[in-house]
Amino acid sequence: MNDKNNEQKKKGGRHPKVDPAKIRYTISLNEAEHARFLSLFEQSGMNVKAHFITSCIFDKKIQTIRIDKGTIDFYMRLTSFYSQFRSVGINYNQIVKILYSNFSEKKAALFLYKLEKQTLEMIEILKKVIQITGDFEQKHL
């Protein structure tokens, strides 16, 4: 009776692989070679050293990824600037509504004139930012 219960129970665990990797090789590296190997491995962007080694042996394509901290910092600051620029546009509409609702026509027109001057300066700054961004993309990306 115990034999029937054991036969009916299914085995747990992983399904066996069709072609498992059973053969193992060992190599020895000196300090300089090991440092060079680690730098190549880091540049490849792979997560497993064994996969990196097999791709090197069998001439598979190795992808090298370089991360430039300056580029990332520039991108983050540009994104921050763009979000600030959008919030200024939202505030601009709110200011115009408040000026006309709280002040006389003459006073509102005076404040709007000052606001227009600041807006023109902001447009010039935005043009410079777009030019700098274009130059940066051509040189570094």
Rank of each mutant, 00 (worst) to 15 (best):
A109W: 08
D73M: 08
I53E: 04
Q131G: 06
A35W: 04
A32I: 15
P16D: 08
D59L: 02
F41L: 04
D3C: 04
E121M: 07
K4Y: 13
T119F: 07
I27G: 05
L40Q: 07
T54W: 09
F81Y: 12
F136T: 09
K128A: 06
T119D: 00
T133C: 07
I132N: 12
K127H: 05
K60F: 01
V18G: 07
E116Q: 15
K128I: 06
I132S: 11
K22Y: 10
H51R: 14
E31R: 13
E116R: 15
E116M: 09
Q43W: 03
I132H: 12
F103N: 01
E137D: 06
G70R: 13
F81G: 00
E137A: 14
S28N: 13
E121W: 08
L112K: 12
A50D: 08
T133S: 08
E121K: 11
I130N: 07
C56R: 01
S104P: 02
K17A: 15
S55A: 10
T71E: 10
N30E: 05
D68L: 03
Y100A: 02
H140D: 09
V48Y: 15
Q43V: 02
H15K: 15
R77M: 10
K127Y: 01
L78P: 00
T79S: 13
H34D: 11
C56N: 00
Y100D: 09
F111S: 06
